[in-house]
Write a protein that binds this DNA or RNA. Structure first.
Lengths: 164, 164
DNA sequence: CAAGTTCATATGCATGTGCCTACGATCTGT
DNA sequence: ACAGATCGTAGGCACATGCATATGAACTTG
């Protein structure tokens, strides 16, 4: 019966804002964006996992495949066929680390870099076009906000309040 | 070899901006947000699908279950157990439409509304807290941009350009 | 009235994914 | 040198999901 009788230190107690949940807007948007990428990925014969690998390999070089899998939130075992495929197509290089022969050093080949650039170019071009739909005033805040949230080390779980 | 020799009408030809792909930032953010909701949903014994139903039922009332499933991008057949569960717990009402007895009119019960409010309150409270991490200047643009993109009827597929 | 369609529902299949185990090669600490 | 941990790889189990089909009730159209 007591709904949320206890006063909250956050703006609203019961039904907060008038806006929909952030997640309820973000999830469909994510879906749509990923769907929008598919033609580009297909045109290059890449899966989303493969593209994630190409994307990630450019940043800081990664020493182990396990770390690579963790970085893109993939499964350590399921990523192996992806790497096999990329390697067989000459997009990545997998060589044993001379210092620790358990480890395979994974790196982009020049061709891999070329493919990644082409794919990412197409994707970002489409995304820029999408950002065009935003009022100029919001565009920058949106992208910067996204960058900030993306850079967060972690998102703390939302905590259930009153009701059991 | 010709990379992307053709000049583009969009800002950048090959490697566009310095920012990561929007999708590459949004997808992990979505994952994290959904994960963050889990404790709240668990506390109320709701699945994400069930919560989606509760959320959607409040807007414009929906005439058919099929339309409800489409609205939340769920499978028409797989949503039925979800509705069964919600109905058995007294959160929704399912009664045959007197005008078309094939159709079941689905609506929130007062208890369902109460639960939805409680859950949504918790979730939005967590989300507001998250928005706190954004510089105030970006916060509004971010939310408004998200609202705008969410309201788009569809996102056109990105088009592969040069390379096959 | 008959044919075709729509709805809610049950069921099955194929796939993608998370998780767990196993195994051989290799490294590290003792 | 030996025990234990780590890495890459293979395989299996469980589950969620997308897609397809089937069925009975009810509606619609000719």
């Amino acid at each position: 019966m007591a709904e949320n009788a206890a006063p909250r230190d956050t703006p609203t107690g019961g039904r907060p804002t008038a806006r929909p949940d952030l997640a309820a807007m973000l999830v469909p948007l994510c879906r749509a964006l990923v769907d929008a990428e598919r033609p580009v990925l297909d045109a290059h014969g890449l899966t989303m996992w493969a593209y994630s690998v190409l994307l990630r390999l450019d940043d800081t070089p990664i020493r182990t495949q396990a770390a690579l899998a963790d970085a893109i939130r993939a499964d350590r075992t399921r990523i192996i066929p992806v790497l096999d495929d990329l390697e067989s197509r000459g997009l990545i290089h997998r060589r044993p680390d001379p210092g620790d022969r358990r480890v395979r050093l994974v790196s982009l080949t020049p061709e891999g870099r070329r493919v990644r650039d082409a794919v990412q170019g197409d994707i970002q071009r489409g995304e820029e076009e999408l950002l065009t739909r935003l009022p100029a005033a919001d565009r920058e805040g949106f992208v910067r906000g996204l960058l900030t949230l993306h850079a967060l080390p972690e998102i703390p779980p939302h905590r259930p309040s009153g009701a059991a």
